[in-house]
């Protein structure tokens, strides 16, 4: 058996990702997070008299509290494994990656464990977010003052 044949065999034997089902589940879970978010925003606006912009900020806070807590008690890992992008793309994924990194490296201590690895996964989002926002802001200021 040469290498190509072997590769083909591996491809045939390895379980196929149910792509259609994954996409549908991601759509439904992601949509559900958006829907629940809109409900929370409306409750905050109507019952607490917050402005819409402030409600969005508190919504992010609530989602992060929910996601970090659920990850800490070990409930969110299974859900993320099932819903995949449906929970990774919303803010819940950002919080989940930070919380799970912190828990995984807790055994290595406060500095070299939690401290060094907290942003292991979420760091790239912060890095590229800030760098792109910075240069786009410079561009905007240079173009329009």
């Amino acid at each position: 058996m040469n290498r190509d044949e072997y590769q083909k065999l591996v491809k045939k034997m390895s379980p196929k990702e149910p792509k259609l089902r994954n996409a549908l589940v991601a759509f439904l879970t992601g949509g559900l997070v958006g829907f629940i978010g809109e409900v929370i925003v409306n409750v905050l606006m109507n019952s607490f008299g917050l402005a819409r912009v402030d409600s969005y900020a508190w919504l992010a806070f609530i989602l992060i509290l929910f996601a970090t807590f659920m990850t800490a008690i070990g409930k969110l890992d299974n859900l993320v494994a099932k819903a995949k992008c449906g929970l990774i793309i919303p803010t819940t994924g950002f919080a989940h990656s930070i919380q799970s990194a912190a828990l995984d490296y807790k055994k290595d201590g406060f500095i070299t464990g939690i401290g060094a690895n907290l942003f292991k996964l979420a760091g790239s989002v912060i890095l590229y977010g800030i760098v792109s926002a910075f240069f786009l802001a410079l561009l905007k200021v240079a173009l329009y003052g």
């Binding site: 990702e17 792509k19 994954n22 996409a23 549908l24 589940v25 991601a26 759509f27 439904l28 879970t29 992601g30 949509g31 559900l32 997070v33 958006g34 829907f35 978010g37 809109e38 995949k84 992008c85 449906g86 990774i88 793309i89 919303p90």
Partner: peptide, 18 residues
């Protein structure tokens, strides 16, 4: 809100799988 959030997640999932 449901449709927009769902669609972005769906597109991401399709990119991730393919």
């Amino acid at each position: 809100a449901f449709i927009f959030a769902g669609l972005v997640c769906l597109i991401s999932q399709v990119v991730l799988d393919n």
